[in-house]
Amino acid sequence: MLLRLPSRARRLAPALLVATALAAVPALAQPVHQDGQAAHAAHAAHANTVPAAAQRWATDAPLRAGMRQLREAAMLLEHYEMGHLDDTQRDNAVASIDAAVSNMVANCKLKPDADAALHGLLVKFIGAANAARAGKLAKTDVQAMSDALAQYPALFIDPDWGRDTD
């Protein structure tokens, strides 16, 4: 017997897969001998880690490229939310967010604390992409992405971040 999911669950399934993957990455980095509960506790501790103002985490090329891709997609979704773009352009921005997040998860090589901080930013883009995909993008979703973009240079060392917006 096949389980038939409600339409809302079918629409959220891709986002849940990405969110599950994001949550699993730090847990997978834990030593094999830790049980599931200990690994979860370790991830929860990392999730709230923020470096001191003078101490930010290093970035790698996939992270820097992904954040630029997210910034471009966020700008597009902001224009969409204001009514300046059509649904095809919205869908392209959502696909760009999905691709950037997937690429960063697959290719970024960060320390566990930095990885957890990055996931805290990515979840805001995933949430906005899901809202846009469902046709329910709101100003709060756009603001969440804007907040994440503002947090990025406070958390990570990316020397060209402010200079490459032209």
Rank of each mutant, 00 (worst) to 15 (best):
K139T: 15
M1W: 04
V123H: 01
P153G: 07
R71F: 01
A106K: 09
D166G: 15
M82R: 15
A131T: 03
L110D: 04
L122Y: 03
L63K: 07
L110A: 12
A134T: 08
M1A: 07
H46N: 08
A144W: 00
A42K: 01
H40G: 13
I157M: 04
A114S: 04
A45T: 09
L5H: 13
A44G: 07
M1C: 10
I157H: 06
D115T: 07
D166L: 10
W161R: 15
A54I: 00
A73S: 11
L122M: 07
A106F: 02
A154S: 09
Q89W: 04
Q34H: 14
R56D: 05
P153A: 10
K124G: 03
S96N: 11
A73Y: 06
N130Q: 11
K111Q: 07
E72P: 04
A19C: 08
G127L: 05
Y80E: 12
C108D: 02
E81C: 13
V101Y: 04
R4M: 13
Q151W: 02
A13M: 12
M104F: 02
E72M: 11
P51L: 04
A42M: 04
L28A: 15
H119P: 02
E81P: 07
L22D: 02
Q37D: 05
A99Q: 12
Q143L: 14
M104G: 03
R71A: 06
P31W: 01
A116Y: 02
P14F: 10
L77E: 05
A100W: 05
L137Y: 01
V25H: 03
A53Y: 03
G66I: 11
T20R: 11
A132M: 02
K136P: 00
W161E: 06
G83T: 12
A100K: 10
Y152I: 11
I126V: 15
L137E: 01
A144C: 09
L149S: 15
A13R: 14
A52Y: 03
V32L: 05
A13I: 12
Q37Y: 03
P26R: 10
H33D: 05
L2Q: 04
R8M: 12
N103H: 13
I157T: 13
F125N: 05
L118D: 01
